[in-house]
Design a protein around this nucleic acid. Structure first.
Length: 857
RNA sequence: GCCCGGAUGGUGGAAUUGGUAGACACACGGGACUUAAAAUCCCGAGGCCCCGGAAGGGGCCGUGCCGGUUCGAGUCCGGCUCCGGGCACCA
């Protein structure tokens, strides 16, 4: 064996072995416990980035560790292959989205293989394949049958110049990213998925997700946003046929209602306008509002704008007529799209009332010392008719009772969660399997005609409507019902549909009769450990939960929840550089030096060191993992990303640290190779000298620490640090004298090091394993166990504090009594100096750790 | 704006349950080896200050900021600041 470490040779060798042996193929085996570990599959953007390296390194540690623990591990990988960037490439570079995507997948596939990840590649899937997306269509049809997919009108970002729908990402400060025109909200008929039907279950089951980070559970809970309240009608004055239905969480405050507000887009508004003049005003107001994003409309620090309508409504509680407005801060999509306004107890209403000179009535008694504007706290009801004297909770109940008795309204639970708009006016996605017939209306494509495949004859211009509408061969079809000429739906599905059930497809990736084989899914589901970026905390993870429940209710799976344990990894970020003139700069293109200041290569201006940002191509702060792997090997790339920070934390990239990871592997390699012969001949000595006893204890302590760090919290950085410490100790012990007589203990330590390192750096670990003379392949070796007996210490180091400050350290026998430890602490010369002449108030002991002497006075 | 996080040496981080702050590593400085360099190995190191000729010893301060609880706070509580993620058509 060469005593220099050449990662490329080692890694190629082991990757070939794993591929030839299909070492990581997962086969259902009802006799064995399974473990399903999954990392969020990537979008094939072209090349893998450091975020992928981090994500997949973490997943691979888990997969390999669990295999060593004897579990039947499923660890698959695939491609989230539909999406906007492929279509942008088609528009900008005249490459077909399919070709672009296929090339990217191929390239990234080799990149992932070069990392030595233990995937079952036989299960690879790509969501853009008809074999995959036909099941999106199949599920859509099942949802449609059950009312879980339906059509309604909603708003999209519209560029009036490009005449096209824009993604939020394509709207930059309210303007189109290509032509800079002001983007407006345009109403379109679109398909929705009824996630709100599962709102209650999605909320309640959060309590069962003990293996999820609290913050993700909290974010989802807030996102679903359950609120209890009431819905009731406000009759329009002088218009017996018209009523404004409102939702409120505070029915107790109805006596303080001094005006009411409709969302500007509310359909009732059109019926309320009195004449052409008012209509023009309403239209002008709507046009203004349509330029605002929802975020701007609801921001609490912005002035709320409204338009008073000529109509009034009656407050049913008081019988008093109150003004009616349309205003930007009321959204059509939430509740009923209309509110009663109680400025006394709602800050937004208070702001609006002040701006438009409206009355404010207080209906809750303020505490005596309270100052402020709207009051939202507890208190006794005042100015509230039959509710006077009650507390808020009781008043809510009485108000609802009163509404129900009068037939005016009802108790209502409302969710902030909205139904999921799945329509996209784009090409590179799953065609929605619907046909429009003049006679039969909306007709679902029959199951036997699936998949509805994407046509090739589509121009990509970036202008106009949905690209599929341009394909005659696609649009023109016959009605499955009556056979007459009909038109296909030209919208495609949101790509979140693809990723909402792919984990189920992985259990039987080529199953042809259904989206997945129920027998396989029953064995492998749920995913035991899911790993991915924290940026998916709400949308993807909520949609996947929804789909799992809906597919369960279709009888396809027994799983209630898709992911038992969730690890949300932090982002990989790096500092950025920019030039006033030429924007973002690659660090590699800067001229000058760190000391004198970097300069822009184009104009020589100083390069400004910008903020640390999430790595992205546009900000030119990416590190290409390929370069890293080419230079140091996959093991070093993996080791460094795992060592640099715990997985859930953001990782600020610092390329210098990589050297350290590489050096560690080199040190280990050299030590093993140089001592190979002595280690192979090692015999266990009968009685260990004290320093070797310490080393032996450290071996077992390290096994314990690494096991716990992986098992309980995925803190690979501290696990690796512990292994590094053990290697340092081994080398130090071996250096003191020759290896003779101590080779056995040293060898035991090295065997432990190599075994513990296997999940992190599998190639080099496998190679060193054979160098240590081990016969059985490391892939098949179990995880090492530690001996509690070997962990026993004879002496303990105890910290002695006086008044909470460390004043001394004493070594005591492990079995010393509390009294004995206290006596030894007080006998310590340094401690004596601090205690001398003062009375002892009390002594606090933390067994095996600390003594704190608290003095009087 | 709203929801959710985060902040510890020159740097990444460690301290797992309120008990030695800075493990491990990077960068840096000094030394060994070398004709020289690289590589490798050894040593040093939070800041400020004091004692000593030196080796060494000692004190105070210190975990974003202000306040609190406690014998004891990086860790708990209250109030801020700054940074990051998400906000429903990026994935």
């Amino acid at each position: 064996m060469d005593d220099r470490y050449y990662p490329q040779t080692v890694e190629e060798k082991w990757q070939r072995v794993w591929e030839e042996n299909k070492s990581f193929r997962a086969v259902r085996d009802d006799a064995r416990p399974k473990y399903y570990v999954l990392e969020m599959f990537p979008y094939p953007s072209g090349r893998i980035h450091m975020g992928h390296v981090r994500n997949y390194s973490i997943g691979d540690v888990v997969a390999r560790y669990k295999r060593m623990r004897g579990l039947n591990v499923l660890h698959p990988m695939g491609w989230d292959a539909f999406g906007l960037p492929a279509e942008n490439a088609a528009i900008e570079r005249n490459i077909h989205p399919e070709a672009w995507t296929r090339d990217n997948i191929q390239y990234m596939n080799t990149q992932l293989k070069r990392m030595g990840l233990s995937y079952d590649w036989d299960r690879e899937i790509a969501t853009c394949e008809p074999d995959y997306y036909r099941w999106n269509q199949w599920i859509f049809l099942k949802f449609y049958e059950r009312g879980l997919a339906y059509k309604k009108s909603s708003f999209v970002n519209w560029c009036p110049s490009c005449l096209t729908v824009l993604a939020n990402e394509q709207v930059i400060e309210g303007a189109c990213w290509r032509c800079d025109s002001v983007v407006v909200q345009k109403e379109l008929e679109q398909w929705f998925s009824r996630i709100t039907a599962y709102a209650e279950e999605l909320l309640n089951n959060l309590d069962r997700l003990a293996g999820w980070p609290d913050k993700v559970v909290t974010m989802q809970r807030n996102w679903i946003g359950r609120s209890e309240g009431a819905e009731f009608d406000l009759p329009v004055v002088g218009r017996d046929d018209l009523k404004v239905r409102i939702f409120t969480t505070r029915p107790d405050t109805a006596f303080g209602m001094t005006y009411a507000v409709l969302a500007p887009e509310h359909p009732l508004v059109d019926k309320l306008v009195a004449d052409a003049g008012e209509r023009a005003q309403v239209e002008a107001f709507r046009a203004e509002v349509s330029k605002q994003s929802e975020q701007e409309r609801t921001a609490e620090d912005r002035p709320k704008r409204g338009l008073r309508l000529s109509s009034s409504v009656t407050n049913p509680f008081t019988g008093v007529a109150i003004p009616l407005f349309i205003a930007d801060y009321v959204l059509l999509g939430y509740g009923t799209g209309a509110i009663m306004a109680v400025p006394g107890e709602d800050q937004r209403d208070w702001d609006f009332a002040k701006r438009y000179g409206l009355d404010i009535i207080e209906t809750v008694q303020r505490p005596a010392d309270w100052t402020g504007e709207a009051y939202t706290g507890e208190g006794v009801k005042i100015n509230s008719g039959f509710l006077n004297g009650l507390d808020v909770e009781e008043a809510k109940r009485r108000a609802i009772d009163w509404l129900v008795e009068g037939g005016l309204g009802e108790a209502k639970i409302n969710y902030r969660l909205r139904d999921w708009g799945v329509s996209r006016q784009r090409y590179w996605g799953t065609p929605i399997p619907i046909v429009y017939c003049d006679k039969c209306g909306i007709v679902p494509v029959p199951e036997k005609d699936l998949p509805v495949t994407l046509p090739r004859d589509v121009p990509f211009t970036g202008k106009g409507g949905s690209p599929l509408a341009e394909s005659k061969s696609f649009v023109e079809t016959t009605c499955p019902g009556c056979g007459a000429a009909a038109r296909r739906e030209t919208d495609t599905m949101d790509t979140f549909v693809d990723s909402s059930w792919y984990f189920l497809r992985f259990t039987s990736p080529s199953y042809a009769a259904k989206p997945f084989d129920p027998t396989e899914a029953d064995y492998w589901m749920a995913v035991d450990q899911y790993i991915g970026g924290v940026e998916h905390a709400v949308l993807h993870l909520l949609y996947a939960r929804f789909f799992t429940k809906a597919l369960r209710d279709l009888g396809l799976t027994k799983a209630d929840e898709p992911f038992t344990n969730l690890l949300t990894q932090g982002m990989v970020s790096k500092e950025t550089y920019r030039c006033e003139e030429h924007e973002w700069l690659f660090p590699s293109e800067l001229v000058g030096s760190e000391a004198e200041g970097w300069r822009c290569p184009k104009c020589g201006r100083p390069a400004i060191k910008g903020r640390v940002e999430k790595m992205s191509k546009s900000k030119k702060n990416i590190v290409d993992p390929e370069d890293l792997i080419a230079q140091y090997g996959a093991d070093t790339a993996r080791l460094f990303t795992l060592f640099a920070a715990p997985p859930e934390k953001d990782l600020e990239w610092n390329s210098q640290g990589v050297e350290g990871a590489f050096r560690f592997l080199t040190r280990l390699w050299r030590f093993v190779v140089q001592n190979q012969e002595q280690l192979a001949a090692a015999r266990a000595p009968s009685d260990l000298p004290a320093d070797l006893k310490d080393l032996n204890r450290l071996v077992h302590r390290t096994i314990k620490k690494v096991t716990e760090d992986i098992e309980t919290r995925f803190h690979f950085n501290t696990a690796i640090a512990a292994i590094m410490e053990l290697l340092n100790a081994v080398i130090a012990a071996a250096q003191k004298e020759s290896l003779d007589g101590r080779a056995a203990v040293v060898k035991e330590a090295l065997v432990a090091i190599v075994t513990l390192l296997y999940p992190f750096v599998p190639h080099v670990a496998s190679e060193l394993w054979s160098a240590l003379g081990q016969k059985q392949p490391l892939d098949e070796v179990g995880w090492p166990a530690y001996s509690s007996a070997a962990l026993e210490q004879e002496k303990l180091l105890i910290v002695v504090q006086v008044n909470g400050k460390v004043r001394g350290k004493i070594t005591v026998p492990a079995d010393a009594s509390g009294e004995a430890v206290e006596a030894m602490a007080l006998a310590d010369p340094k401690v004596k100096g601090f205690v001398a002449g003062k009375g002892i108030h009390k002594v606090i002991q933390v067994p095996r750790r600390l003594v704190n002497i608290v003095l009087e006075g």
